[in-house]
Nucleic acid binder design. Structure first.
Lengths: 210, 210
DNA sequence: GACTGTGAAGCCATTCACAGCT
DNA sequence: AGCTGTGAATGGCTTCACAGTC
């Protein structure tokens, strides 16, 4: 594979394109141009073409892109041609909400285990899953060959939980704890701190009103 | 104010620094260097200094930064010297979890209203708030002078909800719906699509295993 | 000696503009 | 004529390296 470095922003946009294409496909649209995609998702046409060009030539000059075809390609690129088993650690409000979040299933993410160390939570049912103690992480990860973990525990135990996930063989972590965690080089982490996202907004509001 | 353009990545890091500084302050650390901050949050020392330099000279050459002082400055820059009233639209699992999420309160975000149009949800209590119909948005936003809205409704109604928020005078929106929404130029939007975040990870996993 | 603040350099992502195909 | 694919130009963020200060 051409291992040329791809900007992360390109991947984020690809995810957006793929959802836009799903909608277009549902509406029965067969062919679409970079300009129409750009218009729909709020970027420039050149950006759309450049993003796609990292991965191949999917369009026809003078015509545009075949919607179904391009959709299939984008999903494939994102690794969404198949199911991913995911485990969630932290069965509080946020963790529970993520377990029942439909948007994950729609994109091929299957949550196969929820863990917590709070005895009042263990045994509780969330959708069709029973909350387990963290000592079961290893077993469940192996059993389902899960590669992705979601962390929604408090800051104080986030690193411990991450260590358990890494030891169990998890390769990618989505971290909701508002703290920086360390992992070996072969594990990917993305932080998703909710308060930080609001703080970007308050910063912007502060600038405008001054 | 010097309206020099600040990279958004700088703001995100500033949020991270401020939390790191809170921890350092709690541990009784009085003075800290850019190198120590960098080490703690996983960026380069030069990056830390450059980020801070956008906003002033907060350190002492040969010494470093006073922790309490720098913490106060970073919070101020982020607009966190005070409370922000926030409304949430969408009282499903995710919306409910966000209403009870402590990380918001800790950073000065006060959720003052939860709305939904699902009759089975209206009247339900989430923490200390009663879910209201969306026709009450205008009134609640005015009453609390809320400037920030969080959207956790399905894609199909996201744009309608955003329109209501904008009409009510909301100035900044955190959008969890996996679709692109449009707003006037004077309203800030940040998208926080949860599946997209996982897709960045699956893309990375795909690259590595090929 | 240690560490900040900053201009300059380097690097990466986006935009431009046009050649190439239908 | 219309639209893609892409090298070149631009713009912006990060890193470097050092002058300035304690």
């Amino acid at each position: 594979m051409k291992a040329l470095k791809i900007p992360e922003a390109t991947i984020v946009r690809l995810s957006v394109y793929s959802r836009f294409l799903e909608q277009a496909d549902k509406r029965g649209i067969v062919t679409i141009s970079s300009g129409e995609i750009a218009e729909g998702v709020g970027v420039s046409p050149a950006q759309v073409r450049k993003d796609l060009a990292y991965f191949g030539e999917f369009g026809t000059r003078g015509v545009g892109y075949n919607v179904k075809d391009l959709l299939r390609h984008t999903l494939k690129i994102l690794g969404l041609n198949g199911k991913w088993s995911v485990v969630v650690v932290g069965a509080g409000n946020l963790g529970s909400a993520l377990v029942s979040y439909r948007g994950f299933r729609e994109r091929g993410f299957d949550i196969v285990g929820v863990f917590d160390n709070d005895l009042t939570k263990i045994g509780k049912r969330i959708v069709n899953l029973e909350v387990m103690g963290t000592e079961k992480i290893q077993q469940v990860v192996k059993e389902h060959d899960a590669k992705i973990g979601i962390v929604t525990v408090p800051t104080s135990v986030a690193q411990d939980v991450v260590n358990l996930l890494v030891k169990a063989g998890i390769r990618a972590i989505l971290n909701f704890a508002p703290t920086v965690i360390s992992v070996p080089d072969n594990v990917e982490v993305r932080d998703m701190d909710l308060a930080t996202r609001l703080e970007i907004l308050t910063f912007q509001l502060g600038i405008k009103d001054s």
